[in-house]
Write a protein that binds this DNA or RNA. Structure first.
Length: 649
DNA sequence: AAGCAATAG
DNA sequence: GGTTCTATTGCTT
């Protein structure tokens, strides 16, 4: 320990010189932000040493090499900052814009119906006001307030349902596209925010500009002081004008107002954009980075620090941004790992070198609905079909072909009340994916619904009572149609199902399954076989065979025109059932045994599974029929899903 | 590749 | 906090 202390003192003395040099550097106005960042880093490394004294000799050694690294980075000459630029690749100064539309959903609705302009307006999803216009805000309505609270605060509040995001999504992409028409580097953050890297634009305009000034606010500097700063930061000054132009374009061409932030990184642009709201913009100068970081009321305000991270940091005694800035890095690494620790520490110091990643087309499309309670297989199936109908429609407009499908549910549980979603996913067989993107089909491919129900039964034991509060369907792994599909899977695409008479899907199944089907129909079903692993299917079957619910009903009423169908997997446990006439036995056979049991029970009307008949989304269908006929028509709509797959091919 | 946690608006 | 309805990223297996 004594040796360690000597080393520490040596390192400390050496670096007092460096700190002084950095200070001179700052006074001379050379590379101001880089010097500040370096000084901060030195300071935090020093405090790390202070703590490392109490931990281990190894830590100290490592930290000393860190110190030496920093020392060699900055030779003790007056050209210190220049040298550090060449050695430590200081990122080239960038100009980043952040755009944040004012109460976006409310603006979209006010465009759709201008009569809403001057009234207090709230956008409602379920029982929540997700956002509201400024008229409503003046009366105390806030984001994510419950409808009852909002109505109490503001009885004249006008509500518009906003559960269908279609219009918001479309407008959102119009904004992104407009920005893209000026500059290729646009990154979306949610539906209402965009980052734009305009560094190149600025570099082009800079030589053509003689007079510099700031448009809009400059963070924590008066308009008088800003005039003097404009020639010191010509890039940011120009950037503020570009921001104003883009905001004007968004207003003229789309009728939307919003805020903008101009700074040297995404972090700073985002933090500064919200300082004057609504419909204003502000620029952050490098000399005010510490000010804005210090102004944050808690660590939670740092983008990237969510609830969980904030809690972990709080456990270390860290509350304010300053706390994190000064916290020994070694301790932080122990808690979060070196990568997260470095990222967090940098963020706290206002340092962010993450690039603006052009977002491009979305990587997944999903659709979901939440509800108080869902507890029967039929309700689930109807809901999944409803979600899939709109999702398939969106997918078709997108034009790409999804390669994987995911189903998520949220289960209600009193004990485990916190956020728990479960999901299962599987590949989408090529011919099903193709059918999704087909313009002619208006309905959900039967195979897709079958896949969804299989995934569902992996998560929910349908033989036991269940209580769901949310269902989500998602397409991902989206592939470009013609060009990409051909290059990626040349062989499989050439043997498309319609083209090959004998074994359409075989080329695609290849190694993942031992060819099961022989005739065409069996093959199309066989494609789905690899979706559920062999062992999984068998375990489901055996478990169901053991369960009392799955015990075959002996006194099945025989119906005219019904077909005989056997299921169960093993020859020993096979039972015989009579299926309704329009059920394709082979499609039915693809469902897990417990699902089959559940559906059989409904069809046979032995025991009503459904308590409350759900209102179908398709208008004019079975809305108000009597109980008996209502149940029958529900059963019939169920049967529609099981029409022979060939009908749909 | 699958499933989840974390983060965001 | 979570609530809604999405969407992305990164970790873990």
């Amino acid at each position: 320990m004594n040796g360690g202390f000597k080393k520490l003192m040596h390192v400390f003395k050496s670096n007092m010189l460096l700190l002084k040099l950095l200070y001179i550097d700052i006074l001379c106005g050379f590379n101001l932000s880089a010097s500040q960042a370096k000084a901060s880093r030195l300071f935090s490394t020093f405090t790390t040493h202070k703590f490392a004294m109490e931990s281990s000799e190894d830590d100290l050694e490592e930290d000393e090499t860190e110190w030496k690294q920093l020392l060699t980075d900055s030779p003790p000459t007056s050209r210190a900052s220049e040298s550090s630029i060449s050695k430590t690749p200081t990122p080239a100064p960038r100009v980043i814009l952040h755009f944040d539309l004012d109460c976006f959903y409310a603006q979209v609705e006010m465009i759709r119906n201008p009569a809403l302009r001057d009234v207090p307006l709230g956008i409602q999803q379920k029982y929540i006001i997700v956002t509201c216009n400024y008229v409503a805000r003046q009366q105390g309505v806030t984001k994510l307030m419950s409808v009852t609270d909002a109505k109490q605060k503001c009885p004249q509040l006008v509500l518009v349902k906003g559960e269908d995001l279609t219009h918001y999504r479309e407008m959102s992409y119009q904004v992104t596209d407009l920005l893209l028409s000026f500059c290729p580097l646009v990154e979306r953050l949610g539906f209402d925010e965009n980052f734009v890297d305009i560094t190149e634009m600025i570099e082009k305009r800079l030589p053509c500009t003689t007079e510099f000034s700031f448009k809009g606010h400059v963070y924590s500097t008066s308009s008088e002081a800003a005039k003097a700063k404009a020639s010191i930061h010509p890039d940011l000054a120009l950037g503020s004008h570009v921001a104003a132009e883009l905001r004007e374009a968004i207003l003229c061409q789309l009728g939307l107002t919003g805020c903008a932030g101009v700074a040297t990184s995404k972090l700073l642009a985002k933090l500064v954009s919200g300082t004057f709201k609504p419909n204003q913009q502000t620029t952050l100068l490098p000399e005010n980075v510490d000010d804005i970081m210090g102004s944050l009321s808690s660590l939670r305000k740092i983008p990237g620090v969510g609830h969980q991270t904030a809690k972990r940091l709080q456990a270390l005694g860290l509350i304010t941004v300053r706390d994190l800035q000064l916290f020994p890095q070694a301790e932080l690494i122990k808690e979060l790992g070196s990568q997260s620790a470095a990222r967090l520490k940098n963020l706290s110091l206002g340092t962010d070198d993450s690039p603006v990643n052009p977002t491009g087309a979305p990587q997944s499309l999903s659709d979901e609905d939440s509800f108080k309670k869902m507890s029967s297989v039929k309700e689930v199936m109807d809901k999944i079909q409803q979600l899939l109908t709109s999702l398939v429609e969106r997918m078709r407009k997108d034009g790409r072909q999804p390669q994987t499908f995911r189903l998520s549910v949220r289960k209600f549980s009193a004990s485990n009340k916190w956020y728990s979603r479960e999901s299962r996913q599987c590949p989408i067989p090529n011919h099903v994916g193709h059918k999704i993107t087909l313009a002619s089909t208006d309905d959900v491919p039967a195979q897709l619904l079958t896949m969804a129900m299989k995934l569902f039964s992996k998560m929910v034991d349908t033989a036991a009572p269940f209580h769901l509060t949310l269902i989500n369907v998602c397409f991902s792994n989206l592939q470009k149609r013609a060009s990409a599909a051909r290059t990626i899977g040349a062989i499989t695409t050439f043997f498309s199902p319609s083209a090959s008479p004998q074994n359409p899907a075989q080329s695609q199944i290849d190694s993942s399954t031992s060819g099961s089907g022989v005739d065409d129909h069996l093959c199309s079903l066989g494609v789905m076989t690899p979706l559920i692993p062999e062992k999984n299917t068998s375990s489901l079957t055996s478990r169901d065979a053991a369960s009392p619910q799955a015990t075959p009903t002996q006194n099945t009423p025989s119906k005219p025109h019904s077909s005989t169908f056997s299921y169960g997997g093993d020859a020993d446990t096979t039972a015989t059932y009579r299926l309704p006439p329009n059920v394709d036995p082979q499609v039915f056979s693809q469902l897990p045994a417990n699902l089959q049991t559940e559906l059989m029970r409904e069809w046979e009307q032995r025991r009503p599974v459904l308590k409350i008949p759900t209102v179908s989304k398709k208008p004019g269908r079975e809305a108000k029929e009597k109980k008996g006929t209502g149940r029958r028509s529900q059963a019939n709509s169920l049967l529609d899903y099981f029409k022979p797959a060939l009908d749909k091919l």
